[in-house]
Design a protein around this nucleic acid. Structure first.
Lengths: 216, 216
DNA sequence: TGTACATCAGTGAACGCGCGTTCACTGATGTAC
DNA sequence: TGTACATCAGTGAACGCGCGTTCACTGATGTAC
């Protein structure tokens, strides 16, 4: 795809075009292969033009990462569906959505997790990241609340465990490049089994909460 | 540290010096900041000299990653201690060793997991990686064998889950740069709790196998 | 023990390249009156 | 409706830089006899 369609001296939509070009470059060569100059070239614009929209290369990457987190959030909350049809099923859908995002949007994923952008220098990025994680945390809270008080796990810990497991699987087994490790099953199956086993340790999963009954 | 101590025209130990310089550069600026020219400079040698020892930049990085896997293997098997004092305790020590390695050798860790080196182009690297993972797999086999047959989990799956969880935690919460996420507990605690809960789902952990008794 | 010679591991200069960023500029757009 | 003008988003040339890699070379080392 070319991001250089423009009509006249002014591009009209350069900011968007640069984001798109950056994604294309990352997809092709990884985050280290991205350069401002080449993004400008892809957008059909002089190498100085990007600096009208972004302070420097990192700012452009941070913008891409920010949008990645927003898309991830959208995808996650779509999968969660407010905990329907039942919490455990929805929780697994959340995990599948995470892997699905890493797989279908590897360029976003790389911008979010492989660029070493200092988060504290980009508060909006940190906020978007926190928001995505917050969705996972919220789901964990719902699940935890279903448990009898004595064995209720801290939801924050649950969320961190599932995030780390998902991210580990995604970055080891779902990467788009030739550094991907091979797997004797699908990454989705691996994650689903892991999450189910993890939930089992709380007495969750199994058939207990399936079907939406809050019977316990 | 300077890797440039040499006596005379011949360096005497340039290969080692270049590996050391590469680690130093990665530690300082990340894998993307490493260049052959600068490694040569650090080693006190002309920019052409590295090419006597490594075909190109990737070959040097691959050598560093290879040594990283070897060190990781050494660290893991040291922690496992043949399953003593008991399998569950030793298994947790394995996890702690993994995080410890990521933390104390971030440059190795980055060379191993953040460089996008195509594994199939470096069979020795793939072998070293497989060997490290094999240690984890072996431990999982021992653990699994302790379980009554009907609920025995596939050890390969166990190993993959624990690897992914460890790697996820390491790369999200133990990275040395400012992209590290903050955590309301130590990464080690998070991993240990996760592994324990995971093992609980098999009926392992708890006090069952603690103390080395093969009583069940 | 001495010497001729092969081999090895460096040098240093050069190649072509592309980068990030700045600068003074200019063409296009839109708004006030 | 027309015009003057401010603002904006581009240009293009230039800066200094460092890179990976190749090449013919040379100094050092070690070995055969």
């Amino acid at each position: 795809m070319s991001w250089g369609e423009r009509r006249g001296y002014h591009h009209g939509n350069l900011r968007e075009a640069l984001v798109g070009a950056t994604l294309e470059l990352i997809a092709e060569k990884g985050p280290a292969g991205f350069t401002v100059a080449e993004a400008a070239r892809l957008a059909g614009v002089s190498p100085a033009a990007p600096y009208r929209h972004f302070r420097d290369a990192e700012a452009l990457l941070a913008e891409v990462a920010l949008r990645g987190f927003e898309q991830l959030s959208a995808s996650l909350s779509g999968a969660w569906r407010d905990g329907r049809p039942d919490l455990v099923t929805a929780f697994e859908a959340l995990g599948r959505a995470y892997l699905g995002f890493a797989r279908s949007e590897p360029a976003y994923y790389a911008a979010m997790f492989e660029t070493r952008i200092p988060v504290e220098a980009h508060p909006d990025l940190a906020a978007a990241s926190d928001h995505a994680f917050g969705l996972l945390r919220h789901a964990a809270e719902q699940l935890s609340a279903q448990l009898p008080k004595p064995e209720r796990p801290p939801p924050l810990m649950m969320a961190l465990h599932v995030w780390a497991l998902s991210h580990g699987i995604a970055s080891l087994f779902c990467r788009p490049d030739r550094a991907r490790r091979s797997l004797p099953m699908s990454a989705e199956e691996l994650l689903e089994a892991g999450v189910l086993l993890y939930l089992q340790s709380f007495g969750l999963a199994g058939s207990k909460l399936r079907g939406g009954a809050k019977s316990s």
